[in-house]
Design a protein around this nucleic acid. Sequence first.
DNA 1: CAAATTTGACATGCCTTCGTGTCACTTTAC
DNA 2: GTAAAGTGACACGAAGGCATGTCAAATTTG
Lengths: 215, 215
Amino acid sequence: MTDSPTKPRRYRGASGDQRRAERCQQLLDAGLSVIGDVGYQACSVRSICAAAGLTERYFYESFANKEALLAEIYQAQTDYLKANMLAAFTRAERNSEAFAHAGLHAFFDTLHQNPAVARLLLFEILGVSDTMDRLYYEVMEDFAVLIRSLASSLGLADIAHTPNQDIIYAGLVGAVIQIARRWALTGYQDSVDAVIGSSLFLFVATANYASPATQ
Amino acid sequence: MTDSPTKPRRYRGASGDQRRAERCQQLLDAGLSVIGDVGYQACSVRSICAAAGLTERYFYESFANKEALLAEIYQAQTDYLKANMLAAFTRAERNSEAFAHAGLHAFFDTLHQNPAVARLLLFEILGVSDTMDRLYYEVMEDFAVLIRSLASSLGLADIAHTPNQDIIYAGLVGAVIQIARRWALTGYQDSVDAVIGSSLFLFVATANYASPATQ
DNA sequence: CAAATTTGACATGCCTTCGTGTCACTTTAC
DNA sequence: GTAAAGTGACACGAAGGCATGTCAAATTTG
């Protein structure tokens, strides 16, 4: 008896690992599409498999259950969102206003271009389970770090003097998220500039109040 | 054949309507308790009935389904929260800082005293259905009005000059809500004063930026 | 007390989902 | 070509929830 219980074989020009990864990606894409369309709890594993053009067996090959799929999609999409924002930062002029504007534009534009992503990130993630709630918290703290760098670009070098910076940054993240939620719930009627401008307003106000030297 | 298909009878010293109302209230209380304990989607109609000491028949006597119960609890608890805040306003000294502080204290304290309410309002309400998402939106807009009165108490008579007030106020609501979420997710470790102070910081910053005359 | 109504405990049928299993068919390796 | 591995369609049982129904016990009215 050798240690090779299964001999991987090439299929359709791809190795076993490649095919598995491809199927996994198809499921992630289909999951995002279906969840973004009908919501997380209203969709079934079967419907996601059908959308992916795969059968249930391949679902459980890659994910333990529906929640595991949701977690991976959430991670992937928040990473994507962060990447877009970071890219926007590097592309922007090195001027406070433009810098902050670029980051917020990347944020709102990504959600606007991908309503499924918006629905998943803004609505479907809460109240699923304690595990997912914690993941939400971690992601929010992550964004707080991003916001912090954004805020520092506005001359808000440090609210360091004020106590409980973490809470204040969490609040700013919450403000932007809520503005995005409201935007989505009203069918994206407001212009992108309006939501960016209002977010920026809150940032600048906080920055100015924290260190009015820039005024 | 008369028009009286059912003759209401007194039972245990209460009329039929009274008993029905009492049962309804028991279900609302039990629903809040169970949902606050295990979450909305993890709980069943049966478990709520068991917690209420009633049987399923009486559940469907008062509610069409589990979601209808959630909606009524949500309405009742947000009303309760608003009432607490309004009461705090009237009780507070007529001085900007004390006024705003009182409202925020009522908000955070109510959530802190009732973790079940906090969980339901902050986490369990989103992603349930399109209907509930809309209800969430309406409640947030309602709170924005409250925040607006709170902000005006800070001399922020009008951000009226700035465009898109609605969006900005939605952002402020989101900031407070997110601070509350974070507070709950970290086990209410921060002091009430810390979360109030940070929220106040954002309000005052926005107020000062909008109308720096108060500075 | 007797009849009628209310109540509680539980049963029932229906539905949906989950996760696994079966089996014929296709594609590759030898 | 043949055997083995991969694939797809579908079946299956278990589980759980929903909403309604049954029936005996308790309570009230007359």
